[in-house]
Amino acid sequence: MSAAPPAALADPMLPAPWRVRAVRRETADVVTLDLVPLASGVPCFAPGQFNMIYAYGVGEVPVSLSGDPADRSCFVHTVRAVGEVSAAIAGAAPGSVLGLRGPFGSAWPVDAAAGHDLLIVAGGLGLAPLRPAIYRVLARSERFGRIAVLYGGRGPAELLFRDELAVWGARADVTVAVTVDHADPSWHGHVGVVPALIGQIGFDPPNTVALLCGPEVMLRFTATALRAAGVAAERIHLSMERNMKCAIGLCGHCQFGPDFVCQDGPVLRYDRIAARLAVREI
């Protein structure tokens, strides 16, 4: 499935000014920003796509959209402060202005997954790029078989969207399982790695589509566990991360074998990249 057609931009390298409407702190170093355009309407986006966000004078980084694709009032981005640029974006105050280009990239094949069991598997910050897919799925959950959201994090304090996970978990049409790498004894949830959750939920592997996002190591082990459980490689989709400067296939930075992660990805099909994932430094 290909991405939604890119917004018609006269100059795809020219950021447009967007205002920070609201900031929500998710964890110690992660915030979610609601952004509204100063000049235009809010474009459509497909779950899984990203924008290039520019902090004035500091630089630009790719950030996945993390909001509801049905909400056309703003773009929502969840950012972790890991470098100079992401720290500037995460530190943007309500009312301040950021530059934005996009949306770019391929999308989660949500509609193509209709009729199948759906496993949405996230690790760490990887829940943010999957949240638009979860919103779209849950808006019409009757289209799918069993739906499960599996989420792994470092510890309870570093989990994203805990309130929403609880809301989703209370629904009858979706199973939510959350695990952490380690916890203090006050945590009563799962402790262990994400692949270990796969055996604990009911689904029909030959009829399952899986969407994976998280650190590359976690993606590799999760995809291996899904294959071992009987999920077809071509029904496993994962979102890759690489260095990006242009997001439009012109700067060369995001190459992953023959793919440009910015255009062919970030969402790529496992059967096409499995061999590459096993190669170091590719």
Binding site: M1, S2, S106, A107, P109, H237, F256, G257, P258, D259, D264, G265, V267, L268, R269, R272, I273, A274, A275, R276, A278, V279
Partner: peptide
């Protein structure tokens, strides 16, 4: 050999 073609999400 670790053969494979181009990725994508077709």
């Amino acid at each position: 050999a670790v053969g494979e073609g181009k990725g994508g999400n077709a």
